[in-house]
Design a binder for these strands. Structure first.
Lengths: 194, 194
DNA sequence: CCCGAATGTGTACGATGCTTACATCACGCT
DNA sequence: AGCGTGATGTAAGCATCGTACACATTCGGG
């Protein structure tokens, strides 16, 4: 990122630089992302981004897609072949941690209603859904895979969002992790019930 | 609300009128709520609201609290004494329907991080949490009530939000309802599993 | 070498949240 | 009755935002 520091008129690869600056801003303050701030951060005029993105939404869509990719990698790394329900709990913990580690990104990924169904964000989200479906059906081969995948994603997503919004008694990372695993365990404990 | 239509300088109960106007706008366009638009709608100058609300956030907090109350009533009406898991599924359907019926309100209730823990929004949210805890522990007396309540709320909340954000294949109301009940059923079907 | 296309700049407009200074009304006290 | 004081609404202004438009600069192929 520092091969040549000359402030040339043409930036070289402004598109990537803007995405990087935007991601940085997203990690720093949770507050709303501003296109002007992104441009400022990239050391470029306020309207320069419009050469590379149709509008703010397109930039955000790209960021969200990147976020989905990151989340996917994190989940894949957490449990490559989740066979047991305990592995699924590990996935849940990582999902929630991702949301709490990068709250602004997570909100961007979800909080915004997908406009067109074919934008980068929507595609990446669908991939995440497929990921869940695959692994859930591996762990529970005898269940209604589709419905159980929906339920699993919802459960984990709800845990993430309720924590993010402070609707659950929040605390340090360990407490959150404990609550998440307790919730998953409680659901699975229903298996012992009449 | 129409006893005297004289546009007097002093508006009889501007506070209530602003809340009503804001709620109307929220129901109409999903897009962001603007304080100026609220004032416009109430037929009053742009800065008049500041006489009654410290800032935009306070107005929104009030709206969110009202939303939590509405949601609570709706859930209570759907299943006054939920004894069976099937009753709980009915609660889930109503929760999701509320989110889809009033998307902007729902986003306001949750999507915004609670600033101070004692504002009206946070209190109302805590009441909803207590509601869930009470009814879950009634339906599953032998379970870890706290953890199972967290899981239940998360499951339902995730279903609502994923639908709201179009991350699940959406469709008409019946399809959504079917998917919600299928998800709940799939979770409960785990009870038959080893 | 030079011109067109790609890329970035500057200016401008309307909208927003919010502050500050001011105008207008309503009611109680004398 | 009249008046003043506090409650209430208005007007003007600031900083920020997204973005449309015209212009400037640079790069690359003939």
């Amino acid at each position: 990122m520092s091969t040549s520091e000359k402030p040339r008129y043409h930036h070289g690869d402004l598109r990537a630089a803007l995405l990087g600056a935007a991601m940085d801003l997203l990690e720093e303050d949770d507050g709303g992302l501003s296109l002007r701030a992104v441009a400022r951060r990239a050391g470029v005029s306020a309207t320069a981004p419009y050469r590379h993105f149709a509008d703010k939404d397109e930039l955000e869509s790209e960021l969200a897609a990147q976020g989905f990719a990151d989340l996917g990698h994190r989940l894949a790394a957490a449990a490559a072949q989740p066979a047991t329900p305990e592995d699924l709990a590990q996935l849940a913990v990582n999902y929630v941690r991702f949301a709490l580690d990068r709250p602004a990104l997570f909100r961007l990924m979800f909080g915004t209603p997908c406009t067109t169904p074919e934008d980068a964000r929507a595609v990446a989200a669908a991939e995440l859904g497929a990921f869940v479906l695959t692994h859930v059906s591996q762990a529970f081969p005898q269940a209604d895979a589709e419905a159980l995948a929906t339920a699993s994603w919802s459960l984990v997503h709800g845990l993430a969002f309720l924590h993010l919004d402070g609707k659950l008694p929040s605390g340090n990372a360990e407490e959150v992790e404990a609550r998440v695993t307790a919730a998953i365990t409680a659901i699975l404990a229903l298996r012992g019930t009449a």
